[in-house]
Amino acid sequence: MSFWLLLTVNSITFGGLLFLLSAGFSLIFGLMRIPNLTHGSMFMVGAYLGSTFLSGELGFITNFWTAAILSAIEVAVLGALMERFLLRRLAGQPLAQVLVTLGVSLMVADLCLMGWGGDPISVETPSGLGGFLRVGPAVFPLYRVAIIGIAVVIAIALWLTLERTRLGAMIRAGVDDPQMARVVGIRVSRLFTIVFGLGAGLAGFAGMIGAPILSVYPGLDQDMLPLALVVVILGGTGSLLGSFVGSIVIGFIYNFGQALLPELAYFILFLPMVIVLVVRPQGLFGGQVL
């Protein structure tokens, strides 16, 4: 009984982490029409930067949450710079843009190895969340339960931004019809930079939030990127609801697949992506066909 309960809670937790990772991916994909193959790298860089802030090596002491927000801001700036100075040059050539993100992901992986070395870095669970939550016979790590809360808060914040603010309206317009958005006076190129930065920042934040569970190590980027892809393809690009539902579904498939069908775990993880691409290319909740 506790097996099922633990796995269910963990599926939702993992889904929450995946949502933080893939919400930005989905917005970028929806607006710019390209899969950002550096998204896994952003996640990893966020975790590395956060662990450095946390270690106090920079001369000032931060707590976990400040470190997470600082690294999110830093990764957001890096993402915006990358959009402005690399991807903008290739505007209108989605293939070239995808290839550039692929190249940059190779470079980032090596730069991280140079900066932080090959040894894994372990990040302490933030204080106050190291305990357990007991429900009947089952024991849940408090931090994992907290991740669900963080994901919900971020989801609501993003939703409000998209639905209630001027920026959100512009993003939605850009996702629906970039040409038309441009015609009515929205500076779509600047929007691209903002959204790319925002998405990168979210990925960086997710990296730090995930770090106490996953730790930080070379190759973390390659482990996370395919998961973000699966979630977004499943949920549909440019759709917040799609990312949310997609994340939870993949969280369940990932956890139960490994426990119950270990040999086919990755097969059933990527299968929904193929089925969706073939049967319903716009994803479960996406408005647009890729």
């Binding site: 506790s2 097996f3 633990l6 796995l7 963990n10 993992f14 569970i213 996953l214 190759g219 973390l220 482990d223 996370m224 990932y254 956890n255 139960f256 697949g257 490994q258 426990a259």
Partner: peptide
């Protein structure tokens, strides 16, 4: 579990 496993919980649960 595979050599690289980001989250061991599916195994720990067993």
């Amino acid at each position: 579990p595979p050599l690289v496993t980001p989250d061991y919980t599916p195994y720990l649960a067993q």
